[in-house]
Design a protein around this nucleic acid. Structure first.
Lengths: 343, 343
DNA sequence: CTGTTAGCGCGTTCAC
DNA sequence: GTGAACGCGCTAACAG
């Protein structure tokens, strides 16, 4: 068993021949200790490999310099990229990140939130599994929360999301311009504002062209490959298959591609495929995949910025004016989309 | 600014009309408080949404119930899968995980390690960027470390790794059985035991069949798509191209596939491709990719188990007998490998 | 079984 | 500038 008994400030003070508070002042460089004494203290610190006990400090200051990040599914590369943004920005400001994976279970999410509160993290970034489950704990005497990827409810909360409506509107317009009229949309769970906004964006574009998304062409999946695969099969083998399929997240698109390959349906000559979220494999699969790329890394950094602002030591009023930051996405046209076939 | 002033045990004790230590006993259910009093206390706890201050508790007990996980590159799905295993197992045992991404920079890694020490995590899981950089901090009065993915040096340390030698030996034997004689190997940085072991495994298999890996067919990449792409181009356009390419990690394989597509070289009829690490896109790309799959999730869980054993409260001797856990991988034969062409 | 007390390591008043 | 004393919230001895 490791001897977790590191040196304390008292030890440093003794070695340096000064008092504890002097050491404290040097550690937190208050600039009130004489240069020569400072040097002595620093030498002692280095000699003992002293590092301040963050827990004790937090107990005293009320700040732990830890942020909690709770994501619904760490398996999704989208959230990993957001995590990178979060962590880089957190480090930049002297914070560590406690990462929690809800694994798409809202009860686990709640447990994570409780655990983070117990750890007294200074703030929480939350990509919720379900838009409403978290409502309970909100607004209690807990750390400020910034939502990412998804607006949890109508309530005014701090959040950073992609302009999903706009993104899908533009994506579907692009498909329509290619001549597609029978467009299928595979969305994620409709408990998420994210999914809802995306579907609405698709609807708007379609309606503007006096088209509709047929009932049987709007399917709900769950963000995994299998669901895309299954729905793809069903869609493509129906009596009146769509000429374009738009999956509202990237892994389902992999499933579609696989279904396409199995059924030997040429893409894009017979069916076009477009998906939300870019991925590193997107231009390597064949055909390369047309995607709508979210500024995911920036979503992470922006969320941390917003959170740090709420944490203070800014004005108290920051509680009163929650912000919703809307990020723009970009359409990456590749090989999987093309003009509708004449047949 | 959030009022981070949650209720304390004193508040609960006052409300419940008992003493602080009774509350403490209930919270840590020591089983020494009478059932009716326990009920009263629990009601008070619930009413106030009390949750114990983990920092204060850690200060007292010397345990923070936090584990640090430092990975060289969170962008790599391999480490994400390991992270999942780590987190699930940690939660299972009442631990949280502080995730740090070294981003392939050993100085950042060192900073993370220091930060984790300051936070007094109970133990550290480390997938090092470089096998030697970390040596300094080792063995100081710090938390126990378990290495994953990579054995950092000859020193006896706790680690959980795939049997890389064996995996590659079997992989190359498979290629040889398909008739391949000119096999190219694209490895990662040779500062890692991981890369070294893999290359050695390849060498052994080749030598057993009285073959060699030509100098120009052993290339070093960096685990990203671009490097695979670049090396693929170079390899395939050389005067004497290999008939099989074995990339020692999965993202480089994506690069190879892209080079193959661009050069219109049919796979596997002209060149076979095999890679280390499985991925969800592996069976969707065309051709689907033959891979050597590591038990990555299990690597994470096994590492946590090992770490928790070192943390105690077991016998002191656990320090003295570091374990190296070797995991077996499996060959997943798919469409990208086939018999060598007769031409 | 329950209450009282001391102190974990640190930051922060205060006197000097 | 510097040093001694107090307390953050909690757990572990001990006393009742």
């Amino acid at each position: 068993m490791a001897k977790q008994t590191s040196y304390t400030m008292r030890d440093v003070a003794r070695l340096a021949g000064v008092s504890i508070s002097t050491v404290s002042a040097v550690v937190n460089n208050k600039g009130i200790v004489g240069p020569e004494l400072t040097a002595v203290v620093q030498k002692a610190i280095a000699a003992m490999h002293f590092s301040p006990h963050a827990g004790a400090r937090g107990l005293r200051t009320g700040r732990t310099h830890m942020l909690g990040l709770v994501v619904q599914d760490i398996t999704n590369p989208f959230f990993v990229e957001a995590l990178r943004g979060v962590e880089d920005q957190a480090i930049e400001h002297g914070y560590e990140v406690l990462v929690c994976n809800s694994n798409d279970q809202s009860d686990l999410e709640l447990r994570h939130l409780d655990a983070l509160h117990t750890k007294r993290v200074d703030g929480i970034l939350l990509a919720p599994t379900d838009s409403y489950a978290v409502r309970e704990t909100l607004g209690r005497d807990r750390a400020p929360i910034v939502f990412i990827d998804c607006i949890p409810m109508k309530a005014k909360v701090n959040c950073v999301v992609t302009d999903n409506f706009d993104a899908c509107y533009n994506g579907v317009r692009y498909l329509i311009e290619l001549g597609h009229q029978r467009i299928a949309v595979i969305c994620g769970r409709l408990t998420h504002s994210t999914s809802i906004d995306r579907v609405e964006g698709c609807r708007k574009a379609v309606q503007e062209s006096n088209l509709v998304i047929r009932e049987e062409h709007l399917r709900q999946g769950d963000s995994h490959i299998e669901s895309g695969y299954r729905i793809g099969h069903s869609l493509l083998q129906s009596s009146d298959p769509p000429t374009a399929i738009f999956t509202l997240n990237n892994r389902m698109a992999l499933g579609i591609l696989r279904a396409l390959t199995e059924l030997k349906i040429p893409c894009p000559s017979r069916v076009s495929v477009m998906s939300f979220d870019d991925a590193d494999w997107a231009e390597v699969v064949s055909p390369s995949l047309t995607t709508i790329a979210q500024p995911t890394y920036e979503m992470g950094t922006a969320a941390v910025d917003l959170l740090l602002r709420s944490i203070g030591p800014g004005p108290e009023q920051s509680e009163l004016k929650p912000q919703q930051i809307l990020l723009k996405s970009t359409l990456r046209i590749r090989g999987s989309t093309g003009p509708v076939s004449k047949s």
